[in-house]
Structure formats: structure tokens, C-alpha cells
């Protein structure tokens, strides 16, 4: 079947190639020699007990670790054929968007929240253009219908789940290629969580999504690839189905069966 081969080819193309990535905070080692390929148009989940370095690794991709004073990253991270450290952080972060654990909309209007990225990167030619970008981002963030009549009310007035979808819409308004999500549902109720998971499913049509989660059910529901971290090591990285049904490492097995965590 021609279709599946094409599909497979796209899936097999790595978006980010990490080799022997090591991160230290001061003299404390947080991540040890991690190597992994993040695939395009795929949802990759990072799981593992808390403090094992999932967020730290995620922050390497968009150089957010640069903003932490005593954090040092070594090893190789290739994005778009170039070392991430050689990319300009400003353009890099426009192409690799991030959604944080706690919804953090700007204390401005819903419209201005979404329009901020396109504005600073000069993505729109005029007001009508920007209106279009904002609407498209809010539609893809599955929030448009709920907020279209109150675009100029403040974003902090929305419910937690709406705020997080606003943050997702804000991140995708700059048309990134990769979307990093650090436990995006940990502050949300089950209904809002389901909405976000549905959204992630939509987003993988066009983006490569990397999601950190402490919920194995969530990883199983949304991701195609799963990486299991333990004490700063990448223990296992495989298709999600394989990780959950036939883990190759005993540590992975004990984690998914709930013996460590």
C-alpha cells in the first residue's frame, strides 16, 4: 500500500536528534548521556518518577535552560540540520513552542495573548492579517467558539482548562514545527484534561509534539513514542504500545506496574 509507506517515511524522519546530552545544575548532574530522536508528526511522551529530569531534557530543546543561571548543557542536539546551541534562541523558540505546567496567560486580553508571538516575530502584514492568525490559532486550540465574543476580555479570567488551551493557541500562533508540553494537564480537572488530549491528537497532524506527563494512562492515550527516564538516565525509548506491553528493562516494568514512582 503506497499510502502507508509514505506515512511511514514521514514518521521515520527525525525532527530533533539528541546525542549524549548531559545537563548539570551547578555541580549536580540532572541528566546523563541521553540520546534519542524526536520524530515528526508524532506525539512523544516522556514519563518517569518526578525529579528524573524530564522537564530538564524538554527545556534543552528550546534552550529555556539558558535562562537558568547555573544550568549547563553539553552533548549534541541537532534541529533542522544545525546544533540547537548555534540557533538564535529567539527564532528557535518561535519554531519550537512551549506550553507550561501551570497555565500562564499574560494578564492581557485573549486577543493580545495569542497575537503576542506573531507581533514580535513580525508574522502579520496588517490588522486583518493578524485577526486571521489569531482566529486560526484559537480554532486549532479548540477555544474559538468559547471566546469569540469576548476576545478583548482578559485571559486570566478564563477557567483553568480554557487558560491552558489559550496557552496552546498562543504557542501555535507562531506556526512552530515542534510543540513542547510540560505536564500540561497536571493543574486541570478530568474534563479539561480530555479536551487537551483531544487537542493534542489534532495537533500531531501538523506538528511534532513532545509531552511530559506523570500519568501513564495519558502517555498511553496520546503518544506514539514513549521515553522512560529514571534518575537522570533514559532507560528505554520505544513505540508506546511496546513500552506498555513488553518493556525491555526491569525498571520500566516496575514503574508501569506501579512499583516505583
Amino acid at each position: 500500500m503506497l499510502d502507508t509507506t509514505v506515512d511511514n517515511m514521514i514518521e521515520e524522519k527525525p525532527k530533533i536528534i539528541a546525542r549524549d546530552v548531559k545537563v548539570v545544575y551547578g555541580d549536580k548532574e540532572a541528566l546523563r548521556d541521553v540520546s534519542l530522536d524526536v520524530m515528526d508528526k508524532t506525539v512523544t511522551a516522556f514519563i518517569g518518577p518526578s525529579g528524573c529530569g524530564k522537564s530538564t531534557f524538554l527545556r534543552c530543546f528550546n534552550r529555556m535552560n539558558d535562562t537558568i543561571a547555573n544550568c549547563r548543557v553539553s552533548g549534541s542536539l541537532i534541529y533542522d540540520g544545525q546544533e540547537i546551541s548555534a540557533h538564535d534562541p529567539v527564532t528557535l523558540r518561535a519554531r519550537i513552542g512551549m506550553v507550561f505546567q501551570k497555565p500562564n496567560p499574560f494578564p492581557k486580553s485573549i486577543y493580545d495573548n495569542v497575537a503576542y508571538g506573531p507581533r514580535i516575530h513580525g508574522l502579520s502584514k496588517n490588522k486583518a492579517d493578524l485577526d486571521g492568525i489569531v482566529e486560526k490559532a484559537l480554532r486549532r486550540g479548540a477555544l474559538w467558539d468559547e471566546v469569540k465574543d469576548r476576545l478583548h476580555e482578559t485571559g486570566t479570567g478564563l477557567s483553568g482548562g480554557q487558560q491552558q488551551r489559550l496557552c496552546i493557541a498562543r504557542a501555535i500562533a507562531t506556526e512552530p514545527e515542534v510543540l513542547l508540553m510540560d505536564e500540561p494537564c497536571s493543574a486541570l480537572d478530568p474534563i479539561a484534561t480530555a479536551q487537551i488530549e483531544e487537542l493534542i491528537n489534532e495537533l500531531k497532524q501538523s506538528y511534532s509534539v513532545v509531552i511530559v506527563t506523570h500519568s501513564m494512562q495519558q502517555a498511553a492515550r496520546v503518544s506514539q513514542k514513549t521515553a522512560f527516564f529514571h534518575l537522570g538516565n533514559l532507560v528505554e525509548y520505544n513505540d508506546t504500545g511496546d513500552i506498555f506491553t513488553k518493556p525491555s528493562d526491569p525498571r520500566t516494568e516496575s514503574y508501569i506496574t506501579g512499583r516505583i514512582g
Partner: peptide
């Protein structure tokens, strides 16, 4: 978190400070 949000969108440090 406000500053992190701005930086995460590709704002420079000066932009994050002065805009947010």
C-alpha cells in the same frame, strides 16, 4: 511564569521585561 511564557514564545529578555 509570565516571563517564562514570553521567553518561550521567542521574546528577547528585554522584550519580556518591557512587554510583560
Amino acid at each position: 511564569s509570565i516571563k517564562a511564557a514570553a521567553l518561550g514564545l521567542g521574546a528577547s529578555k528585554v522584550q519580556a521585561v518591557f512587554h510583560h
